[in-house]
Write a protein that binds this DNA or RNA. Structure first.
Lengths: 226, 226
DNA sequence: TTTTGAAATATAATATAGAATATATAAAAA
DNA sequence: TTTTTATATATTCTATATTATATTTCAAAA
C-alpha cells in the first residue's frame, strides 16, 4: 500500500497535503498499536521504503518522532525497533501515573464540561454497553481510549490531555496482547463515572475514576510479567 | 561552531559517536532554552547547515524530535519555528500540572530516596544559597531545574520524571525572560522541602512542595501575559 | 573457536522538485 | 504626478529522492 500524494482533491478547493511525514507517522503508529508490528521487533527502514513507496527521508523523520513518543527505540547503526513489552515495574508505574492524573482530570471535567461534550461522551459510553454487538476487541479498546481521552480533554488542560494520550498508547498495546477488560464490570464503572459528570459533581467524578482505575489495575495485573 | 565527528577520541577506546542527530538535537535545544533563539522565531534549516557544518538529514531529524517535544512548531512548506511565548492560559495549565505531579513526586521521594541521592540533592540546594556567589541567573535556573528533576527521579517513577522534564523546559524558557525567582524566599522553601526529605516524611514533603509551587506561581504570575 | 568476507542496513551528503515569500514592474485610480 | 493595486519574476527555503559511505551482522572457511 503506497502513500498517496493527494495534493489537491476534486473541485476547486486547494486542500494541500500535509506532507508524507505525518502520514507515515500515523501508519507506523497504527501498525504498532494494532500489534501488526509486535513489541521488541526490528523496523528496517528499507522495508518501509518498499512497502510505502516513499523515500528514506520522510520515514526517518517519522521514526525519529516515534522515538520521542516512546513507541520505538533506536540503536546506533542497528536501527529502529518497537518498544519492548511492559514489565511489571513499568506496568505499576503506568497505573500510578494514571491514578495521579485521571481522577483529577475527571474532577476538572465535572466542573467545566459542556453539554455538547457530555452528550458525545454519553453516546460513546452507550456504544460500549455489553449487550451491543461488538465487531472486535480492537473496537472496544479504541472506544475505551477515546472515552478516557475525551474526559481528559474536557478537563480543559492541554498538558494533562497530552500526558494521558502518551500513557494510553502503552496501555493500549498492553491490553491488546490479552483480550481482557471487556467486562460488564468496566461498563458499570464507566456508568458511575458518567453519572457523576452529568450531575457535574467533581468529588464523585474523581472518586469514580479512581475506583475505575484501581479495578482496572486489579483486572490486568495478573497478565503483567514478573 | 561545527559539530565534530569524534569517531574515536585519543587513546585506544573506540568510543563510537552516537551520530549527529543527538548532538544537533542538544545544540538546538540549548539554543532555544538559553533564548539564543527567542520564542516564535524562524529556524531555517539552511542556516543550521552552514552553522553546524552538517547536512540537512540529521538536522531535519533533530527538528522533528524537537517538534514532538513541543519546543518547535512546523508549518508545511514554511519551516520550523520556536514555540511562541506562553500565554496566561498556558501558564496556568503548566502550574496546574506541576501542582498535580510534583507534590506527589516529593511524597514518593520521601518514601524511597537513597542516602546517596539525598546527599547530592542537599549539596545542590546548598549551592543555591543566597549568600553564595552566583555566576549568572542562568546558573540558578539550571540548578533549580536540576533540583526538581532529581526529586522527581527519586520518586522512582520514570513516567513522572519524564512528564516533569517536559514541563520544566517551558517553565525554564518562561523564567529566563524575566530574571525573577532568585529570592531568599525560594531558598527557604527548598530548605523546608529538603528537611522533610531528610526526615523521610512523605506528608511534609508533599506539603512543602505544594507550598513551594504555589508561592512560585504567585511570584511569576505578574509576568504572564494577559 | 576465530577470522574473514559478503550482504544487509544504517548514516549522512547531495541533488532535484516544488512552494512560499519578497521584489520589482506595470497598470489603474486618486 | 502620486499612490495604490495587481501581476510577474526572482530568490529563498522546504520536501523528497537519490547517491555515497560506514557499520553491523551473519555465514563460511581456516
Amino acid at each position: 500500500m503506497a502513500v498517496t500524494d493527494e495534493k489537491n482533491s476534486e473541485e476547486g478547493r486547494v486542500r494541500r497535503s500535509n506532507g508524507f511525514v505525518d502520514e507515515v507517522f500515523d501508519l507506523i503508529r497504527a501498525d504498532i498499536m494494532s500489534l501488526k508490528i509486535p513489541p521488541d521487533t526490528r523496523i528496517p527502514i528499507g522495508s518501509l521504503v518498499r512497502e510505502l513507496g516513499v523515500s528514506q527521508t520522510p520515514i526517518r523523520e517519522a521514526l525519529s518522532m516515534l522515538e520521542v513518543t516512546g513507541l520505538v527505540t533506536k540503536k546506533q547503526f542497528v536501527g529502529y525497533c518497537t518498544a519492548p513489552k511492559l514489565n511489571r515495574r513499568q506496568f505499576d508505574e503506568l497505573f500510578e501515573m494514571r491514578l495521579l492524573i485521571e481522577p483529577f482530570a475527571a474532577r476538572r471535567a465535572a466542573e467545566k464540561i459542556s453539554d455538547q461534550e457530555l452528550t458525545e461522551i454519553c453516546a460513546l459510553a452507550h456504544e460500549m454497553e455489553p449487550g451491543e454487538t461488538r465487531a472486535s476487541y480492537d473496537l472496544f479498546a479504541d472506544q475505551d481510549a477515546e472515552l478516557h481521552e475525551r474526559i481528559a480533554r474536557a478537563s480543559g488542560n492541554a498538558l494533562i490531555e497530552g500526558a494521558l494520550k502518551r500513557l494510553h498508547v502503552h496501555l493500549h498495546i498492553f491490553r491488546l496482547r490479552f483480550h481482557s477488560e471487556v467486562t460488564t464490570e468496566a461498563y458499570s464503572e464507566h456508568s458511575r463515572l458518567i453519572d457523576a459528570l452529568v450531575r457535574r459533581s467533581p468529588a464523585e467524578a474523581e472518586a469514580a475514576m479512581s475506583f475505575h482505575i484501581e479495578r482496572s489495575y486489579a483486572r490486568l495485573v495478573p497478565f503483567a510479567d514478573i
